[in-house]
């Protein structure tokens, strides 16, 4: 069983929801990224999404764009990002790591070479933002061979026929983008998210994570009541930038706060 599946299974047994933080690899440096990953786990992360910097991050808002720019200014490459994952794996064999990025750096390396390198590094999932299912069948096949899950996005406008297709092609979990916009956007309509997640679940057995618009413990708690996983990204990236060398501690305590808020739902249900 893949590390991602095992993680979600264990969470389900504990009736907990997954907390999935996103950070951009190499922002502000690759060595700090490694420290941050361990801090995220200490704070209660179940899966880590690691952003691979790209020069033209079309689907990202200003916060993650700038993180990408900072990482690229230091020459961070896809190979080096995978290097951080293998370092992380030296002391952590249980927390799944998902690489999230754009197609071109992967294609430049060669999709087959990428799949092999990702397996060797201990990567568990890959989300290519600009590979919708129509263009991703080859990638899914290659990643299946090396036991890496291909994660797909779903949006508020995704039609039912596509929900079925993505539900079949997706691995690990599905990532529901809760609003039309770029990363870091504000405001989400919780009721709409709840009914949408319910609809998506008719077409798939995969856990459904929700992201975009989650900024703090309160919003994470609300979303975790209606989804299997909560993804939080821009807020963390912003914290990293503001906290400087204190970033690991700041992220760990922020995550702990979010984790506790999410788990209150569980305790309430149990009592």
């Amino acid at each position: 069983m893949s590390r991602i599946n095992a993680t979600f299974q264990a969470l389900q047994q504990r009736q907990q929801k997954a907390l999935i933080p996103f950070i951009t690899a190499g922002d502000p440096s690759l060595s700090l990224t490694l420290t941050l990953m361990h801090a995220l786990v200490a704070g209660g992360a179940d899966v880590i999404e690691l952003g691979v910097p790209f020069s033209d991050p079309m689907a990202d808002g200003p916060v993650i764009q700038r993180a990408s720019e900072r990482a690229l200014a230091q020459g961070v490459t896809l190979r080096e990002v995978m290097g951080v994952v293998s370092q992380f794996r030296q002391t952590n064999q249980s927390t799944p790591v998902v690489l999230m990025g754009y197609a071109n750096p992967i294609e430049a390396m060669g999709v087959e070479a990428f799949a092999r390198a990702a397996q060797t590094a201990g990567v568990d999932g890959v989300l290519v933002v600009d590979y919708p299912p129509e263009e991703a069948k080859g990638l899914v096949m290659l990643l299946d061979k090396v036991q890496i899950d291909t994660i797909f996005l779903l949006s508020p406008t995704t039609r039912e026929s596509r929900l079925r297709e993505v539900g079949q092609l997706g691995r690990g979990y599905l990532y529901y983008v809760s609003l039309n916009g770029v990363t870091g956007a504000a405001n989400m309509d919780l009721e709409a998210v709840a009914s949408r997640v319910k609809q998506i679940k008719q077409f798939t057995h995969l856990p459904v994570g929700v992201g975009f618009g989650i900024r703090d413990a309160a919003s994470a708690k609300r979303v975790s009541a209606v989804a299997d996983a909560v993804v939080i990204g821009s807020r963390l990236v912003q914290e990293i930038q503001e906290a400087g060398p204190q970033a690991p501690q700041r992220l760990e305590s922020l995550l702990r706060e979010i984790r506790q808020a999410m788990d209150e739902n569980v305790n309430k249900a149990a009592s």
Binding site: M58, A59, A103, V129, D130, Y131, P132, E134, E135, F152, L153, L154, S155, P156, T157, T158, R159, R162, V166, V177, N180, G181
Partner: peptide
Amino acid sequence: GVFVAETLIEA
């Protein structure tokens, strides 16, 4: 082809 995030597919 169509290499965009899911959010643009329907549009």
